[in-house]
Design a protein around this nucleic acid. Structure first.
Lengths: 333, 333
DNA sequence: CATAAGTGAGAAAGCCCTTTCTTAACCTCA
DNA sequence: TGAGGTTAAGAAAGGGCTTTCTCACTTATG
């Protein structure tokens, strides 16, 4: 591996000059510049990124924290971030947090110990306080799909309340009056907001929000199944079901089928997130889009602006949209 | 950020001694060691990983190349690698190759320029020659799910021929005699081998391999759909269909349903890979497992052995297994 | 008791860059 | 023509660590 010294020697200049040519910050006489470029070419010189990092205390790497690597949601998220960042010559160090407090903390510390220039996080378990404190250190952070009081500049969020509203309003428009709801863990902000939107839609339609028609799950397929069974056991009739994410919707769908129901005739179902598998399930799932890839990309842009001097346009709040497929149908009294 | 000098000063020793304590390679007097440890503790000292990398020309990072970030397959693969590597304190730099020659090359060069200690690749587009040449440089590489002549030490592979055989034999055992096959792109080794296994099963059963019952797709959902339509247009009866991956099986399933067929009564379908969505499709997909996560983990272990002095047991060849779900059924003449 | 062998610790070089400081050369304008 | 102002390039000082080299001091050996 040739070093900058060898380039300097071959070009007959000092290494400072080589560095200047390489970084293009200071002006260099055209003749010398060309000699340097020629030498670089001939030696096939590539700057050592480690040495460069040591000298300018910048690693050109961004740490990313996701909950899982093998889930559709996070795949899209990382894809968006990687694309954007690598186009800028930065690299992405990915860590997994598993929605577990200890693991997430570990991951963040790991990323810090690797001298990342910034962090982009989909932090689920970390507390607001922890994040605020992290923000105190000079390490820039960006939060995907999360709202933290006092960190709004670094946050991108989805209007979850609106999403929940859209899902339920769609069913109301189809004539459904008795709508059950399988919620996510209510201590999560997004779960709470989606449910709130659901209730708003009901209330706008002049319908009561019957808590007997609400089940709290934890976003897993299994809980979709459990939820449906439990709701049916309560013996209140309902012709439609909103699930706070697609996993639970998928669970509910296979459960319903196992119970011998025919879908969507016997039960209309709406999901949330528009996961890739939403059109694999049968019937294809009506759902609410969750532009997390856009949010992730925006986080990347924010970091590129903040740390690497780019100036992308920034947007922090994203809107969900209803996506109508085949799992919902007009209510036939 | 405290440096090693400050630790040395506080402990009243030279920085060499601090380094020795930190790295535990040379023996240090117990008294001094404890003074150093105390100082480290008090200053909350963390070695600067960049400086360390510069000094010992090792970055403790492993580059990973995958085709996509947002596909189930690669999620599992990365999850396995990340888990293993981070447990060893190494980090993972992920790049995306998109199954495109230029992009894959770019990605590899990018990883090299980041001074990775090793590369783990799921290289689809790169040629054997390129990989052999890459292997010439002292940079250790590992290849997931690929077999390259002359690089077998670095490769982990699946017995694709056996997988294809298992899929078809399963259908034969169910009494099917006319079995159609939607293959992957035949220039891909795995596609070729899966098809070969299919033919072997037929031949063992004394049945001819009718090329009219074979369609070559490119592993996409769309091509599963196209394939089924094309095969049906050929007007040869078949009661079962093997698809060389789950995506195509999923496409074929929705296509069949759109055609008004009832599954699996009218057509038994087998997939390949056991993707996460295999049990989302309806009917749940009978398929052949592809232990890519195991292969990926093994690649990680191989690198840990080769580069970081671990000594994990290594296995290079993996076996697929038939997973029977609900998309296949006994043939009722 | 003198010498050889073995230990442990410090000094200093080296890893490969960036960037400030300095100096030399060149312009410009009165 | 010379003071003042620019520009361009080299010298050198880091950046924070690892590791070799060296030396002082112990302990073993004949």
């Amino acid at each position: 591996m040739p070093t900058i010294y060898q380039v300097a020697e071959r070009a007959g200049v000092s290494l400072s000059t080589v560095s200047r040519v390489l970084n293009g910050k200071a002006s260099v006489n055209k003749v010398l510049r060309e000699r340097v470029e020629k030498a670089v070419e001939e030696l096939n010189y590539h700057p050592n990124s480690v040495a460069r990092s040591l000298a300018n205390s910048r690693t050109d790497s961004v740490g990313v924290l996701v909950s899982e690597l093998n889930a559709p949601f996070f795949g899209d998220l990382m894809q968006a971030i990687e694309l954007r960042l690598r186009a800028a010559g930065k690299h992405v160090i990915i860590t997994v947090g598993r929605d577990c407090l200890e693991t997430e903390k570990d991951a963040v510390e790991f990323l810090i110990s690797r001298n990342c220039d910034a962090l982009i996080m989909h932090a689920e378990a970390l507390s607001d306080e922890y994040l605020l404190k992290l923000n105190q250190s000079k390490l820039p952070i960006a939060l995907v799909n999360r709202q933290v009081e006092g960190l709004s500049e670094a946050c991108t969020t989805l209007d979850n309340e609106k999403g929940g509203y859209l899902a339920t309003r769609h069913l109301l428009e189809l004539g459904h009056k008795n709508i059950a709801y399988i919620s996510g863990p209510i201590e999560k902000r997004d779960a709470k907001l989606r449910l709130k939107g659901h209730k708003r839609a009901l209330s706008e339609a002049g319908l009561p929000a019957n808590s007997e028609l609400i089940f709290e799950g934890n976003y897993t397929e299994e809980d979709g199944k459990l939820g449906l069974l439990e709701l049916m056991a309560r013996d209140l009739p309902f012709s439609a079901l909103v699930c706070a994410n697609d996993w639970m919707a998928s669970g509910a769908i296979s459960c319903a089928r196992d119970l011998g129901m025919s879908l969507p005739q016997d039960l209309s179902i709406v999901g949330f997130d528009d996961s890739v598998f939403a059109h694999h399930v049968y019937p294809r799932l009506t759902t609410v889009s969750n532009p997390f890839a856009d949010m992730a990309e925006m986080s990347a842009k924010y970091i590129l602006n903040k740390v690497y001097g780019q100036s992308n346009e920034i947007k922090r709040s994203f809107e969900p949209e209803l996506i109508v497929r085949e799992s919902t149908i007009q209510y036939e009294g």
